[in-house]
Simulated assay, not measured.
Amino acid sequence: MATKGWASKVSSISSRIYFFLIILQIPLFRISCRSGMCTTPIEVTSSQLIASEVFPSPFVKALLYPGAIVHGLIKDRTFPRWSDLLDLYNLTTVKEASPVVDLQRLEVLAGSYFCVAGAIVGILKPGRMSMFGTLLVIWGLVKEGMLGKPVNTDPVRGVYVYPTMILALICALSSIKYEVKKAMRSAPARPIAKPVERSSKSKLK
């Protein structure tokens, strides 16, 4: 019982830390996106949502606003206006931007979706979505940064990974620790095969 309680606490704390890393838009990486340069999964996700018009702009603004408040207080101690959020994140012209940028970085785009969704869902119930998203983003960054796919000749717009990405990965992995143990404990035990007893006829022979 003590081990179960400890694992549950670790999972809960990790999920909350991961949630704040994503929602407060702590920089995890730097990569080109439709809005210019994105440093968080929410920025990548928001640029794609605005461009594709899958969700209305108020939904995207709701994702951006917590991080915008934190950044505004840190930079100039002001609250950003709700109406200026799209301009603040350079999202007013993403519809005219070429979709090739996102198509070349599908792993980062898909991983960012999972990171954002996993952070929100993980507050209620920790799961594996955050882990899948973080691993996808890391693979996309490694593919572009180390393998050179797609090729980038501009060092200013090159891929960069912040040390906070390691913290995000640790939190994503730790948040599923309790689920894995629970699944192992709830797995049905396999019956042990018993040796076949010899019949009475064979004994008489």
Score class of each variant (00 low, 15 high):
Leu147Met: 11
Val108Ile: 10
Gly36Glu: 08
Leu24Ala: 09
Ile69Pro: 11
Glu144Asn: 15
Pro163Leu: 00
Tyr65Asn: 00
Tyr113Arg: 10
Lys4Cys: 00
Leu124Pro: 04
Leu135Lys: 08
Arg185Lys: 14
Ile42His: 10
Glu107Phe: 05
Trp6Leu: 01
Phe20Ser: 08
Ile170Gln: 12
Ile13Leu: 09
Met37Ile: 14
Ile50Val: 15
Val100Tyr: 02
Ile120Tyr: 04
Val137Lys: 04
Leu109Met: 14
Leu169Ser: 05
Ser200His: 09
Gln104Pro: 05
Leu85Glu: 06
Gly36His: 09
Glu43Lys: 06
Glu96Cys: 04
Ser112Asp: 02
Arg185Met: 05
Ile23Asn: 06
Trp82Ala: 10
Arg185Asp: 07
Ser47Lys: 01
Tyr113Val: 12
Tyr18Glu: 09
Val100His: 08
Met146Glu: 09
Leu91Lys: 04
Arg157Gly: 13
Leu204Ser: 13
Pro155Asn: 09
Pro99Ala: 00
Arg30Gly: 12
Ile42Thr: 14
Thr153Gly: 02
Val180Tyr: 07
Gly148Ala: 05
Gly5Cys: 00
Pro56Gly: 08
Tyr18Lys: 09
Val100Glu: 13
Lys194Met: 15
Leu106Thr: 08
Ile176Thr: 14
Ser52Thr: 15
Phe132Met: 10
Val137Tyr: 01
Leu169Tyr: 03
Thr134Lys: 02
Leu86Val: 05
Thr39Pro: 06
Gly5Pro: 01
Lys203Gln: 14
Leu64Pro: 11
Pro27Lys: 08
Thr92Glu: 12
Leu88Tyr: 01
Ser14Arg: 05
Ser202Pro: 00
Tyr162Trp: 06
Leu109Ala: 15
Gly133Gln: 05
Thr134Leu: 00
Ser199Gln: 07
Ala97Val: 09
Glu144Ile: 11
Leu91Asp: 06
Lys61Thr: 06
Phe132Tyr: 14
Val60Asp: 01
Ala183Met: 11
Pro155Gln: 06
Arg16Gln: 07
Cys38His: 07
Ile17Tyr: 10
Lys143Val: 14
Phe79Asp: 06
Ala117Trp: 10
Leu64Ile: 06
Ala117Leu: 15
Pro195Ser: 05
Ile120His: 03
Met129Ile: 03
Ile50Phe: 10
Pro155Gly: 08
Asp102Leu: 04
Pro66Glu: 01
Ile138Leu: 14
Ile50Ala: 15
Ala2Pro: 03
Ala193Lys: 13
Lys75Val: 03
Lys194Gly: 08
Leu147Gln: 11
Lys205Met: 01
Lys182Cys: 07
Gly72Trp: 04
Ala7Lys: 02
Ala117Tyr: 13
Gly122Gln: 03
Tyr18Thr: 02
Glu43Ala: 10
Leu85His: 03
Leu124Phe: 13
Asp84Cys: 02
Leu73Glu: 07
Ala193Met: 11
Asn152Pro: 05
Glu43Ile: 01
Gly140Trp: 01
Thr3Ala: 02
Ser35Gly: 11
Ser130Cys: 11
